[in-house]
């Protein structure tokens, strides 16, 4: 079942995945190129000064990319399922419904995770190439909620798409928007580095919990509860 569902998702979303992957790669590579260029034209100690004391986030370009990726992926994954009630086919497959939904969503999350992992590796390599490890620590804490936002956007969009009642769909979408928005919180213009230094685990927990929303929507869909 796992393989078959993965096969189906792959056939459905491969081009989406390629496009999202390309955007992510371009932006992440852009972060490297920008910084490499800056390091050539500005003295390293001045750049570091700005990083440490002025919250110069050389990686800020990536900020909304994961959330956007999650949103697009969910739309591309679930639009074909929901147009013409195609999800009915999927839920008629001889397997437990929740298992089908969980697997479908897990496949999406893993594919996104793979893309985000590449992003992060590029950011990590870029940071460690130019800066001491303290900057790497700070970068990790700063970008973590941005990547969480990618998963949150994905899970919430999926749940909002599958939901059949417009009232609930709006409630889920607004709540999801508030959650994603909160993951970009920070005191300064750039959201402030390390804003989630003490709360990243709570953010991770809340975002993980949104994985479960699809089961509620899926149940409503399956049973026609308007």
């Amino acid at each position: 079942m796992l393989f078959a569902l993965w096969y189906k998702e792959w056939l459905k979303t491969k081009w989406t995945l390629v496009a999202i992957g390309a955007i992510n790669l371009l932006v992440a590579a852009g972060v490297y190129l920008d910084l490499a260029n800056t390091m050539k034209t500005v003295e390293a100690n001045v750049v570091l000064m700005n990083v440490v004391f002025k919250e110069y986030l050389y990686y800020v370009d990536i900020k909304y990319i994961p959330a956007l990726s999650g949103l697009i992926y969910a739309v591309m994954q679930f639009t074909p399922e929901l147009s013409q009630s195609r999800l009915k086919l999927t839920l008629h497959l001889p397997a437990p419904e929740q298992k089908i939904l969980a697997t479908t969503q897990l496949i999406g999350a893993l594919e996104l995770a793979a893309i985000f992992a590449i992003d992060y590796l590029i950011l990590a390599a870029t940071t460690l190439a130019f800066f001491p490890v303290e900057v790497f620590d700070s970068m990790t804490v700063t970008v973590a909620p941005w990547f969480f936002a990618g998963f949150a956007a994905y899970f919430v969009t999926a749940a909002a798409f599958v939901e059949i009642s417009w009232t609930r769909r709006v409630v889920i979408a607004l709540t999801g928007y508030a959650l994603v928005d909160a993951l970009f919180l920070g005191v300064s213009f750039n959201a402030g580095n390390d804003a989630f230094a003490h709360a990243w685990w709570a953010a991770a927990l809340v975002v993980s919990a949104t994985f479960l929303l699809l089961f509620v929507s899926g149940f409503h869909y399956k049973r026609g509860i308007v």
Partner: peptide, 18 residues
Amino acid sequence: MILRRLGKTVLAALVVLF
């Protein structure tokens, strides 16, 4: 079943929180 119950609790909690 349990996942759906949990999901409903999560949804309720998130709605209240936000």
